[in-house]
Amino acid sequence: MNAILNLLINGLSTGLLIFLLASGLTLIFGLMSVLNFAHGGFFVWGAFVWVWLFSATGNFFISVVGAIGIGMLIGFIFEKTLIRPVYGNHIRQLLVTLGGMLVLVELIRMIWGSNPIRAGLPVWLDGSIQLGGVVLIKYRLFVILVGLIIYGLIMLLLKKTKIGMIIRAGVDNREMVQALGINIKAVFSMVFILGAGIAALGGTLLAPYSGIIFADMGLQYAILAFIVVIIGGLGSVRGAALASIIVGLAGAFTAFYYPDLSLAVNMLLLIFVLLLRPKGLFGEKG
């Protein structure tokens, strides 16, 4: 029981971390069909800026806000310089965002060196709590909480606000929204920056979670996020959330019960979805 509960929490927290990365990715894709291969770069920048600020200030919240700010700033620059010039050309978009990823990761290596860096944890999040004989690690519960709050906020933004309505309409039919006189490119810029910010937040949450951060970690998580976005359906936040949790739980349980299979489980999930339902669980576009 103890093990199963802990695996459940592990899986959920990993899944929600992946969701933070995947939500921006899926919205950016749904809105402009831009597949951003540099999204993992924002994530890893978030992690490094957080660790750097946290070791300098010692304040958890200032560091998180700083990391998100830097993530959004990079997203803003990125969108203006790299993505704008290649709108509408899928192949060049794929190529240029991969180049952007390379530069982002190399800049990390240049600034912080290529060795892994240890990430600390604020005292009030350290340790574990006992709950009816079950030991639960505090930080993982915290990650789940933050992930759920972010999911709620995104859903609130999408369903209850005017800008959210425009985003949803844009995902459905971009030309129609444009024809109604809405500057969809400005909306897209906003979504892109927001997505970069959420990815950076994901990075900050990951840093204490794994204890060690390194430059290549962005790509590893980006691959997971891509898998999640495909399984959930490109453009669907709900799908991304569900798929993240599935991938997180599948990873946690197979790593415990069949360690040899855990490497392949995500790929198997992906292949399964591509064979049976290539547009994903909730996707409209195939």
């Binding site: 891509f226 790929m267 992906l270 290539p278």
Partner: peptide, 28 residues
């Protein structure tokens, strides 16, 4: 066969995923 009937980014992602899988296999 899995990905080329879909949009271009599916092939890009699936090859990336497979190459990571093979990297892990080679290491483990």
């Amino acid at each position: 066969m899995l990905s080329l009937r879909l949009q271009s980014h599916f092939y890009a992602m699936l090859t990336l995923g497979f190459s990571e899988l093979f990297l892990v296999i080679a290491e483990k």
